[in-house]
Computed example of a mutant assay.
Amino acid sequence: MSGAVVSELVLADPESLQDLGRYAARARALDADGAVRLQAVGSVLASWVCVLPGAGLMGTGTTLGLRTSALDVPAELDVLVPLAAVSDRVARPGERAVLPVPPMTGSAAWAAVSPPRSGWQVVGSVGSEALQRVASDGIAEVADGTPEGAGSAAVAALRERVWGRIIGTADGDVGGGASDLEKGGPAYPAALAFAGYALGFLTAGAESTIATNGRWTRLTTSAGHALTRR
């Protein structure tokens, strides 16, 4: 990653800074030692987090969260920093909506797996209630299928199977998929429902858009995006 040396990011308002803090807190709940990729281009800050790590050379199953924020002061930056460092800095608000850029940087395989910026094709929409049902059923399935003392490889295989399942097809759903199909809903990996739920992107009564681009599928809500690679 590269970018100009930037010591701070000035967001549009204090609410945007606090929203970023809540987003980081939710991502930390998934991985206490996780990181966030801060990618500033002009007046837009894109904050990327990893929800599910991928497997293999192609990063199959990699599932990312993306939240964008408006910057009051344009900047050019692309760094990977600990989520904990962002949370600490947001927890000490000042008079300005400023996020001091953590000095420590790191590396992660998921940060090198960048989804395309253009060329997405919208394939349909799905309601937040259906997404939440898929996420809740999947979480329960992972919990019930993970006995005490299970090895990390077995747990990873179970998660890959559950969250890689395609919803909206007659032969594979974890709750809500069949009804979505009956209503003409789009097919999408369960990982997107989990990411949307875990990161707080789902709003009761709202519709989320599903789009595809090559091996990628994207869920878009008013709060952010979840993207997964198949």
Rank of each mutant, 00 (worst) to 15 (best):
S2R: 11
V5F: 05
V10A: 13
P14T: 09
S16I: 08
L17C: 10
L20P: 01
A24Q: 05
A25Q: 09
A25V: 02
A27V: 01
R28F: 00
R28C: 02
D31M: 02
D31V: 03
A32D: 14
V36I: 09
R37T: 13
L38M: 15
L38E: 10
L38P: 06
A40I: 10
L45D: 03
L45R: 01
S47D: 09
W48Y: 12
P53C: 06
G54S: 14
A55S: 15
A55T: 15
G56K: 02
M58L: 15
G61I: 01
T62G: 00
L64I: 06
L64W: 09
G65E: 02
G65R: 09
D72G: 13
V73M: 05
L80M: 01
A84G: 13
S87L: 13
D88V: 10
V90E: 01
R92F: 03
G94V: 03
E95Q: 13
R96P: 06
L99A: 00
V101A: 04
V101N: 07
V101H: 03
P102Y: 00
P103W: 15
M104R: 14
S114R: 10
P115H: 04
S118R: 14
G119N: 01
G119M: 02
W120S: 14
V123T: 10
V123N: 08
V123M: 00
V126T: 00
R133T: 04
S136Q: 06
D137T: 06
A143D: 12
G145Y: 01
T146L: 03
T146A: 08
G151K: 00
S152T: 15
S152F: 06
A153H: 13
V155K: 01
V155N: 00
V155G: 03
V155P: 04
A156P: 08
V162Q: 04
T169K: 04
A170T: 11
A170F: 14
G175Q: 02
A178N: 12
E182I: 01
K183F: 15
G184V: 08
G185C: 03
P186D: 11
P189E: 12
A195T: 10
Y197D: 15
F201V: 08
A204W: 13
A204R: 11
A204M: 12
A206S: 12
E207W: 13
S208D: 09
T209C: 10
I210W: 00
I210R: 01
A211Q: 04
T212V: 15
N213Y: 09
W216K: 13
A223H: 06
A223T: 13
H225V: 05
L227N: 12
L227H: 03
